[in-house]
Design a binder for these strands. Structure first.
Lengths: 125, 125
DNA sequence: CTAGAACCTGACGTTAACGTCAGAGGCAAG
DNA sequence: CTTGCCTCTGACGTTAACGTCAGGTTCTAG
C-alpha cells in the first residue's frame, strides 16, 4: 500500500466500527479509554477510524473471550502490529497460552461430567 | 452404607472442608448462603459437614470454572444426588453443555492465534 | 431549515464470587 | 486459667467490561 493510497483511505465513524465488529459503541469508546484503540478526531471532535479497526476490535473480543484483560492486550499489541518482542513479552505470550490450554482442559473435564449426567438422565426417564 | 454407619460418620468443621477442597472458609460459607451446601450446626452454632462435602465443593469449583453460576448449579443439583430430572432440567443441562463446547472452540481459536504469534516471534529474534 | 439519527463527555450502575475487616464467642492444651 | 487457634455474624470492598442515563452538539436527508 502506497502513501497516497493510505492518505486516501476512507475513514469511518464509531457506529460503523461497532456494527462491523458486532459490539456496542460504548465498548469501542472503552477500548480507546484503555489504550487499545487510537482514533483520529474530526474538527468537531468525532472519532474517525481506519477500516482495519473493525478486525482489530474483533481480535480484542477474541482475546477477551480467552480471558486476557485489556491491560494485557495493550502490553502485547506490539507483538502484532510491529512484530517486535522483548523477552518479557515472549514470556507473557507463553504464560497466556499455557493458561488458555489449562482452561481448555478444565472445560473439557467439566464437559465430560455434564455429558455423563446427560447420558444417565436420558436412559432413566 | 448402613444407617448405623451413617450415624457414626465423623463430622468435620468448616476449616477442614476448606483445606480439603482447596478453597477459602469464606467460599464455603458463601456456598451455604447460595443454597449449594447445607450444614448441620453444633450446639454452639458451628457448622458441621459430612465428609462428602469435600468432593462436593470440588465439584462446585469445577462447575464455576466452566462458567456455571451458583444459581444454575442449585437448579441442577437434583440431577446428581437424586438422579431425578424433568424436561426443564434436561434442557438446561444440554444448554450448558453446548455453551461449554462453544467456549472450548473459542478458546482453541484464540490459542491458535497465540501460537501463531509465538512461532513468528521465536523465529524473528 | 428542520427533524431525526448519530455523536460527544461525564458519571453512576451492574454482576459474581468471593476478600477483608471488626468484634465476639468457642475449644483444646498446658 | 490462659494462650492461641478456630469459628461466628454482619457488612463493606473488589474487579472487568461494559450498560445506561443525562444533557448537549453535529451530521444528513428531504
Amino acid at each position: 500500500m502506497t502513501v497516497t493510497e493510505a492518505a486516501a483511505e476512507r475513514l469511518i465513524r464509531i457506529g460503523e466500527v461497532a456494527r462491523g465488529a458486532g459490539v456496542s459503541v460504548r465498548a469501542v469508546r472503552y477500548y480507546e479509554q484503555q489504550g487499545l484503540l487510537i482514533a483520529e478526531r474530526s474538527p468537531s471532535g468525532q472519532r474517525l477510524y481506519r477500516q482495519d479497526a473493525v478486525p482489530l476490535v474483533r481480535f480484542f473480543q477474541q482475546m477477551f473471550a480467552a480471558g486476557l484483560t485489556s491491560r494485557r492486550i495493550t502490553e502485547l499489541l506490539p507483538c502484532w502490529d510491529a512484530g517486535h518482542t522483548d523477552a518479557e513479552q515472549r514470556a507473557m505470550l507463553r504464560a497466556e497460552r499455557d493458561r488458555i490450554r489449562a482452561k481448555i482442559d478444565d472445560l473439557q473435564a467439566a464437559l465430560d461430567r455434564l455429558d455423563e449426567v446427560i447420558a444417565i438422565t436420558d436412559t432413566h426417564p
